[in-house]
Design a protein around this nucleic acid. Structure first.
Lengths: 219, 219
DNA sequence: TAAATTGTTGACCAAGTGGTCAAGATACGA
DNA sequence: TCGTATCTTGACCACTTGGTCAACAATTTA
């Protein structure tokens, strides 16, 4: 909360600065910590998580965790940094040369798959953004913005060519993001309302989204 | 975290149990506290908020806040209880007699309006559900589930009558919820990506959602 | 106006938490 | 095998935070 602006490079700094090459043990333990931290942070948020929890989950002492990452914020930044790539990769795949509706549906499908396969990552971001995105705001304003702007231009071109209904590209992206991530972020609500078995649930989600998207986007 | 299961009746318990009628001062101060708490909880989450912050925002001492609500959890439960109604009212309006697409679009529009007018409420719920809905889970499983089931039946009837595309009703509701609440819950991300003035942004959001919904749902 | 009830707060406490440190254990190159 | 660098941890500290309490102020009631 207090100090914003954490640098997002996922480097762990074992004592001094990042000069020597990483030991085998370092690599193993840093990975352990980051994995544990994703678990803990995604289900409790930043403030709700304690270094002790992370240490327990990672199976080591708190002091040892703080040996690999100097502060709790460092751990948090590292987790975010390592998850960002996974989370945004699919959008980069959107291909201007492909069939518009097919491309957009493929993207949606991939996001839906990720929501199911990596709900932790989704919740980590949801938490971070809900708290005002203190850490990843710079990332959102630079890398993400640049990527999204590029993809919006592609979508706009498709529309101009009459291959797509005249939606606002940015809002189409928002629609895809929200409707897919919802299944990860709001899981407790979904579980409270859903009576179908899990695979049926996701089958229905996919069917409904596909129908709404393909029909909604048809020119 | 630790103890789940807080009762959700929004009663403040000044000292003893809830017997005597509420004083003028009680009503005023409880309202102040709840208003302040909505502010604080919605932007910091439960764990990230302190009673001191709430007291400051409400303009009184911490001890006094704890005089009206015995514990931090009580404040939280009260805020949730008083916000739940506002949040769910619109769905109840969905009218089986009206024109299906028009009814669903009216509902979507109302949710969009709420996201803009009461983003705090939206974020409060998002936070609560992200943390596993420890407090409102019973509510989700009872009142909300019953309401949603009823509305799903209406939508299913519409579909059976050929007035609506064959979507899964529950997932249509999820789509409406997610795509509208997104504008409140993920505001920092949206602001990082959007370049238009605020009213244009919402105009575009509405246009895009309307287009996708009406075309996607047409039989 | 006097008594009783209600409202208000500073001072305080116990528990939890982020982070430090010294001292010992382990791995590793020569 | 020895010496050095790396790894690990219990004990500890400063600070935050939820909650209590006694004492005092304001308000209502008779």
């Amino acid at each position: 909360m207090a100090d914003d602006e954490i640098n997002l490079n996922g480097d762990a700094t074992v004592s001094g600065s990042s000069s020597r090459k990483r030991t085998r043990i370092q690599i193993r333990n840093e990975a352990r910590i980051v994995r544990a931290a994703l678990d803990v942070f995604s289900s409790n948020g930043y403030r709700g998580s304690t270094v002790d929890q992370i240490a327990d989950t990672a199976g080591m002492s708190k002091a040892n965790v703080l040996y690999y990452f100097n502060t709790k914020q460092d751990i948090y930044a590292a987790v975010l940094a390592r998850t960002l790539t996974i989370w945004l990769d699919p959008l980069a795949e959107l291909d201007a040369e492909g069939d518009p509706i097919e491309e957009l549906w493929k993207y949606t499908q991939e996001k839906l798959r990720l929501s199911r396969k990596a709900p932790h990552a989704s919740r980590l971001f949801a938490n971070e953004i809900l708290q005002g995105a203190p850490v990843i705001k710079p990332f959102l304003e630079n890398q993400l913005k640049s990527l999204v702007t590029r993809k919006c231009q592609i979508i706009q071109t498709w529309i101009d060519q009459g291959k797509l209904a005249p939606v606002a590209p940015l809002h189409l992206i928002f629609l895809i993001w929200s409707s897919t991530q919802h299944y990860a972020d709001f899981a407790p609500q979904i579980n409270a309302l859903n009576t179908e078995p899990e695979d049926v649930l996701h089958e229905q989600a996919e069917q409904t989204l596909k129908l709404m998207l393909t029909r909604g986007l048809a020119p």
